[in-house]
């Protein structure tokens, strides 16, 4: 399929058409505090903001909800009845996703499909079409360029939109699902116009200034730098609150707990959990393999920039910068990375 031209009015009609046909549409909606946006269902396009406001939380929760029922159980005398949850979902279209958020979902596909397929994750993935909106480069702490993405990256997106002025978009189908979505309307073909190319180039140049690309061999350097003083120097500032992981599009740790619902039954749920918290790895004996905050902060950085690249051949970070903006202790991941780059350049492990 050729790339297309979409006017704001055509996009609004598409939102109405999707809703009418039973497909829910999710888009960045301004928060009540007017600071940022949240990905929320919309029925009309004018409820959404497509002007580049960064949703406070990532797309992750649309595929891995903060608390999700894995199954329900009903207790009977000497017996238990299990009530499975469905693994097929109502179709949804995410409109105006950040390219970095769409990429985060694609990066997580690797662990979610590792030998055992997580049907709850992939059920939602199958039901979802992601329409990303190229980003103008958000602020001084995003660093998607450094992790191999870009403000117009199409990884994880089914369609990529790039703005053309205030009320039109250039639409590039990326996958079959994206083509099917664009086939719902009669949109005019449009070869990438110069203004779109200029927008993409300007955004890339802007973001590239925030942090240099990960040096080659960085994950190997990290694997050998478990005892790097950088971790001790900065990690003691971390409160272990887990806010960074909650807002992160790629942090995916979870806990599994039972929650009774009355006397006769209840639900087994998975709830987001955070490796920075102090009880995360405590054994029943009381022994804790990650006894101090240094180790817990290090785990988060290692998982993203060393472990995941080793195991899944992808960096577990999209450079969205949310962890930097959310951290009450002022931990600054690109700054930490910058220090580690310097250490690698200076000849490795101290």
């Amino acid at each position: 399929m050729n790339s297309k031209s979409l006017s704001l009015a055509e996009l609004a009609a598409l939102v109405r058409d999707l809703n009418a046909s039973g497909t829910s549409v999710v888009a960045p909606v301004p928060t009540r505090s007017l600071c940022g946006a949240d990905y929320r269902p919309i029925t009309e396009l004018n409820q959404a903001t497509l002007n580049g406001a960064l949703p406070r939380r990532s797309l992750k929760e649309l595929f891995l909800p903060a608390s999700e029922v894995l199954l329900r159980y009903r207790l009977k005398k000497n017996d238990v009845e299990l009530l499975p949850v469905p693994t097929t979902f109502t179709p949804q279209v995410i409109l105006g996703a950040r390219p970095c958020d769409a990429a985060g979902v694609a990066v997580l596909d690797r662990v979610m499909g590792w030998d055992y397929r997580d049907e709850l994750w992939f059920g939602r993935r199958a039901a979802t079409t992601i329409v990303s909106l190229a980003c103008p480069g958000f602020d001084g702490v995003c660093f998607c360029h450094a992790v191999g993405l870009n403000p117009d990256a199409s990884l994880g997106s089914d369609v990529l939109l790039v703005p053309r002025g205030a009320d039109a978009y250039w639409a590039m189908p990326v996958t079959d699902k994206g083509e099917a979505l664009l086939a719902r309307g009669t949109f005019a073909d449009l070869v990438e116009p110069a203004e779109v190319t200029a927008f993409r180039k300007a955004a890339e140049e802007k973001v590239a200034k925030n942090l240099a690309s990960l040096p080659s061999g960085f994950h190997t350097f990290m694997a050998q730098s478990f005892d790097h003083p950088e971790f001790k120097a900065i990690a003691s500032r971390c409160h272990g609150c887990g806010a960074c992981a909650a807002v992160c599009p790629t942090c995916h740790c979870f806990d599994i707990v039972d929650e009774p619902e009355g006397m006769e039954g209840g639900a087994r749920r998975r709830n987001w959990d955070f490796c920075a918290t102090c009880k995360f790895t405590v054994h029943a004996s009381g022994h804790n393999p990650r006894a101090t905050q240094n180790e817990r902060f290090r785990q988060r950085v290692m998982h993203k920039f060393s472990i995941y690249p080793q195991r899944f051949d992808a960096v577990l970070c999209t450079g969205c910068g949310r962890c930097v903006r959310a951290c009450p202790a002022g931990m600054d991941l690109p700054e930490v990375l910058g220090h580690l780059y310097a250490a690698q350049a200076a000849g490795g492990v101290s």
């Binding site: 590792w114 997580d118 995916h252 979870f254 806990d255 599994i256 995360f280």
Partner: peptide
């Protein structure tokens, strides 16, 4: 190491790049 999923998903059990559950 403490585990939750046993399936290599929940991020609980790793020691560096090694997932104890897998």
């Amino acid at each position: 190491n403490r585990m939750k999923c046993g399936l290599g998903k929940c991020g609980r059990c790793n020691i560096g790049p090694v997932y104890v559950c897998k």
